[in-house]
């Protein structure tokens, strides 16, 4: 293990921890109300580790639904991770299957977005990514078990906590904007996500938006920068 990289990954995860602990607590409280024991809550957060689908599962349990439709819904909610997994595959091509298995099991929206904010740190560096992911996961388990055991220690609707992860995502989105046409892609993706969310059930809007907007991004980039080994130099064409 490369300690330095691991520690860098842990450090990069800390803003996620700030968001995961209160949200995990809220999950634990809700799951208890739905009749899950603290051990079941902990096991779900350990093995499933996907916030949106865990909340949905609790809602469905409260409505008295059986396990099969819940598992079905979980699959479709978490299908979006396949897109993130595809992107990560670009950066890990010299690693063993079991390393990839571990990294992919730990993939979440938040850790993916943080990892993508500096891709030079993750390129074939599984230890860094693992440090980032495992820290987030521990926070999620800790939060949810604490919520199940002790109830909401802190009011998760207070102190601006609901805005911790949104603010993190906003900053991570802006970090992705490195060229002028990325702004255009952001606007296209934003508008189409609103349309798809309105038009379709579940969270297909994330998958469809990603496919549409990245298709457009790819087309624009191929038109604007035909050579694959384009430098970062400013100036050149344009006005």
């Amino acid at each position: 293990m490369d300690n330095h990289q691991f520690r860098a990954g842990v450090k990069a995860a800390l803003p996620i921890v700030l968001g995961y602990i209160p949200v995990g607590m809220a999950f634990g409280v809700l799951a208890r109300q739905a009749g899950l024991t603290p051990i079941e809550v902990g096991l779900m957060s350990l093995l499933v580790y996907a916030g949106a689908s865990q909340f949905l599962a609790i809602e469905m349990i409260l409505k008295g639904m059986a396990w099969s439709p819940i598992i079905f819904a979980t699959f479709f909610i978490n299908l979006r991770h396949s897109l993130m997994s595809s992107t990560l595959s670009l950066y890990f091509n010299r690693n063993r299957l079991r390393t990839l298995g571990l990294l992919s099991a730990e993939l979440t929206d938040e850790s993916f977005a943080v990892a993508m904010s500096n891709t030079s740190k993750i390129e074939n560096r599984p230890v860094y990514l693992f440090g980032l992911q495992i820290t987030s996961h521990v926070a999620w388990i800790t939060g949810s078990v604490a919520g199940a055991l002790f109830g909401g220690l802190i009011d998760h609707k207070s102190y601006g906590i609901p805005f911790a992860l949104p603010a993190l995502f906003i900053c991570l989105l802006l970090i992705q904007i490195k060229k002028i046409h990325h702004l255009l892609i952001m606007v296209i993706a934003g508008i189409s996500s609103l349309f798809f969310k309105w038009a379709l059930p579940g969270n297909w809007y994330i998958v469809l938006t990603a496919l549409l907007a990245s298709g457009i991004g790819m087309a624009i980039e191929t038109k604007l920068f035909p050579s694959p080994s384009m430098g970062e130099g400013k100036g050149g064409g344009g006005k």
């Binding site: 992107t87 989105l173 993706a189 609103l194 938006t209």
Partner: peptide, 18 residues
């Protein structure tokens, strides 16, 4: 190239609906 646009598209699809 398309895959490199996934992060920005996914993040937009998370932020805007919020």
């Amino acid at each position: 190239k398309g895959l490199e646009y996934f992060p920005i598209s996914i993040l937009s699809a998370i932020v805007f609906p919020m």
